[in-house]
Amino acid sequence: MKKNLTICRALDICKTYWRGKVAVEALRGVTIEIKTNDYISIMGASGSGKSTLIHILSCLDTPTSGEYYLEDKLVSSYTDLELAKVRNTFFGFVFQSFSLLPRLTATENVALPLIYAAVSKKERVRKARKILEKIGLGDRMNHRPNEMSGGECQRVAIARALVNDPKVIFADEPTGNLDSRTGAEIMDIFDKLVAEGNTVVMVTHDSTVASHASKTVRLRDGMIQNE
């Protein structure tokens, strides 16, 4: 993969939530760029707007104002269908709370994005298994989330984020629900992914976690803090 090609460019992003008549300005003009093979950590206190930012960057949410470009194409011009396709093939997302479907097995959970990419069942299973093997869950293929530990669940979630070969992997406090040893194992996986050429953007409020990244962005009250 070529280095230093800009994938995402967010300019002066603002996001305002409305709680009844009270406006909550979660983001107040954030500008950020993601290049290939970046390893970015986003830090900040609780409520500083980290999740809001990463949701907008991963096209799970839309900004109130500001411009967001994906490979030089303005995201606000995308249709619902195109946005779904972006989420499906362009990005992978790892949530703090794993967010697996409880009734599906590990393999089925990992294969979920492939369903929406119209991949055949045989190919879905093959790909899902390959990634589960790689991530060290070869013996958990047919387990359901409630039959696995937190660390295992988070690895399934990472496998799901990887299954469509995304350009950027986003993770919102992926170690937040794990003990420190398991958290460290998860961080090893991200380190490896970056070493293999992947691009990772990770939210955390833990500085040891952030220290894995090559670049750290600090948020405070919805704005980037310059040191």
């Binding site: 499906n88 479907l101 979920l112 929406y116």
Partner: peptide, 16 residues
């Protein structure tokens, strides 16, 4: 609702 959220997050379109 959560399931719908997860499906959409991994790429399900409104149509799906």
């Amino acid at each position: 609702t959560r399931e719908i959220g997860i499906r959409k997050a991994v790429g399900a379109s409104n149509q799906n």
